[in-house]
Write a protein that binds this DNA or RNA. Structure first.
Lengths: 235, 235
DNA sequence: CTTGCATACTTGCTAGACAATCGTGGAGGT
DNA sequence: ACCTCCACGATTGTCTAGCAAGTATGCAAG
């Protein structure tokens, strides 16, 4: 398995590169991704760029109207709640099933160890092992479709995360402790307890993230919560 | 809202038509869907047909290798179990949450009424209201992403269903009774009870469907479980 | 019977072009 | 001065034509 990273196709290579650039915050929702520019910057034909864009649109990372340019998806507080609630639906049931067999995924405990390891570093470094913790739990049930669904949600979560530069809203120690407790509850066979704790865990993160995203509408918006009707014309 | 069915784009129209033809069994996995043939039959250019095919590939209804023609996905018993388990994961947690607020979706009770109405007719007519019953439950929580995920699973289920012509494996009365009991448990606020009953409900359907799909390898296969090595050359 | 090669078919991608549509800006009327 | 309407540029949707690359199949040779 020497050459595993070989790009299977050009459109896949472009879409992968675009995905990482989006998830790293290089591409924001304020600049339009026209097919022509994309084709020129990657030195490919326009249909190729078009296919790459449409792939990311189908993943939910880009949005595009009828004849308009594609833009990075702008996820508001309502979308954040939608995403996190979907996460909770999937993951809490998974915890119940894992608790029945008392299955504690090794990847999850390792991921939680990594969270503790970066406790002193940047808050952004917590995001990766945190996501790895949750995906490890999902993957532990060995359901291909479930894992794919959850991965799609994780992508959107990371898209939200990259928009809030000041991630001081993450209490690393608390996150790590709650993860640990969840694993313990699974080991004890307490499915409902693990599910409920996860629910609280995700609810807290959800509301913090929703507030952080809803409150930052640019430097000129003083009172985002008190917008008057004249400011909403189309959307 | 007079013109609602207007095709937003040609590729969408083609992919929609293809989807219905696949789900109705007109297109089976034994014939190759060539891009040029598709383009010729719909009288469009090849890139258009290509886009429509790739859209269905991303939905999981079609599969395609490196430089090979697209074919209708062939879902084996293992895939059936994967799909039904994913359904169970999503839906059982939904039932728990619906039971908390004792929310009984009107669409679900109507769908179950429709199941009883077609009890005397063809077994195939049960599939549609049955799916509608389950999707109504999912939609009741009002989560956009969750509904989309479940709809994707339902598509694959229907793809499996169309392969088993003799659907005498469906006990309409039993299905309808179990659905009714699930709704009652929700109304009583018994989330775990509803979740467990649903689990048994789906498990039974899953194993029947898996057996029906795994055991039908054509009219000439007398003993599907005892095939000798010389009969499997490539696939 | 197996192995190797050549050919046909299909897809991946490119280049260029035209029509349809959306957004924007300016001309004209009130 | 303000509003309405039209024309223009920009962008996407789709088409035509074609070349390159890969896969599969058939045939010939060992």
């Amino acid at each position: 398995m020497a050459a595993r990273v070989t790009a299977t196709s050009i459109v896949d290579a472009i879409s992968n590169d675009l995905r990482t650039r989006i998830l790293e915050g290089e591409l924001t929702s304020d600049l339009a991704l026209t097919e022509t520019e994309m084709a020129a910057s990657y030195d490919v034909a326009r249909p190729t760029a078009k296919a790459a864009i449409e792939k990311l649109v189908s993943e939910g990372l880009l949005v595009r109207g009828a004849h308009k340019s594609a833009r990075v998806a702008e996820l508001g507080p309502d979308s954040v709640r939608d995403i996190y609630r979907a996460r909770a639906y999937l993951e809490s049931e998974v915890l119940r099933r894992l608790a029945v067999t008392r299955t504690v995924p090794e990847g999850a405990v390792q991921a939680n160890r990594d969270i503790a390891a970066v406790a002193g570093g940047s808050a952004l470094d917590v995001v990766e092992p945190d996501m790895r913790f949750h995906t490890s739990l999902i993957d532990a049930v060995g359901n291909e479709r479930l894992s794919k669904m959850y991965r799609s949600l994780v992508s959107e979560v990371r898209l939200c995360m990259v928009r809030v530069q000041s991630l001081n809203l993450l209490d690393t120690a608390l996150i790590q402790a709650e993860h640990q407790r969840i694993l313990e509850l699974i080991a004890e066979g307490d499915g409902p307890g693990a599910a409920q704790l996860l629910d609280e865990h995700l609810s807290r993160a959800r509301e913090r993230l929703a507030a952080a995203i809803g409150g930052e509408a640019g430097p000129e918006a003083h009172h985002p919560s008190s917008l008057h009707p004249s400011s909403l014309h189309s959307s």
